[in-house]
Amino acid sequence: MTPGILVVGEVQNGRLAPATLEALGVARAVAPSGDPIVGFVSGAAGKSAAADFARFGVGHVYCAEDPRLDAAPVGAIAHAVAAAAGAAGAALVLVGGTTFGRDLVGRLAIRWDASAATGVTELVRADGALRVRRSVFGGRAHETRRMEGPRCAVALRPHAFSVPAEAPMALTVESIATADLPSNLIAPRRVEVRAPDRGAGPSLSDAAIVVSGGRGLRGPEDFHLVDELAAALGAAVGASRAVTDAGWRPASFQVGQTGKAVSPQLYVAVGISGAIQHIVGMVSSRCIVAINSDASAPIFKVADYGIVGDLFEIVPALTAEVRRARAP
């Protein structure tokens, strides 16, 4: 059997999670033609989502139906995944970059005796070797690793890939037995799941994303545009000194030389001109987006992406687009 790729499915609201679909897309891109791509699902929830694999062109799905796996620790699921990968003769197991996916890869590295990598942003097969690219040091650098050996387990970076086009085909489900699951791997119990609290945003100092507002927002009554964009991004809210001096927001919101220094993955500066006092507080952010009506504003010199336009139109449009893009 030609070694192929096993894509591990995660289920969200009865369907395959977007993270799994992204992994599917990557599998299709990296599989040499003719190599089979197969899917894996577990638990009762998994069984009902198996059909989604077929919708996206993966017709053979391994299913560990055991309902104990619906809320089991990842170690139990890894047992079944390894069995499926073995049955499929897979050379590569791909999973989305979720908390589950990263943990799964750690377990598979041992259980399935494979090389492993997480947070992968690029996956390339060349010169008979599989190479992955991933970000390190909080996004301040990237490394390329060569994955050795006949088996490799990879968790992707979340949202780094697009969902592929549908390619419906017929579905075959192959059962994976789980009778020999060690009891200590399924003894732990998930008691409850509480939906995430969307009310309070992350704190400014260690947020992964920050949206800051400046004097370009004419008054405190307009600052809600910043708040809404931040909420849509799951971001913390910051402000320039002009804003905090004017009392639109408390001093604790100030980003800058005499306020807080932040270095998030993404910094969105709304209506901020980019005076040095502000710049020094955010210039080490990984990616900076500036929205300002003045094309000569110094902020555009340090930003990676800029939109020169009327923030009162751009920001609501951006908030709407972010909500649309993040919807499950």
Binding site: V74, G75, R102, D103, L104, V105, G106, G119, F137
Partner: peptide, 9 residues
């Protein structure tokens, strides 16, 4: 390296 693999392994 932010692998997050060690605990699981």
């Amino acid at each position: 390296d932010e692998g997050g693999l060690v605990a699981a392994a």
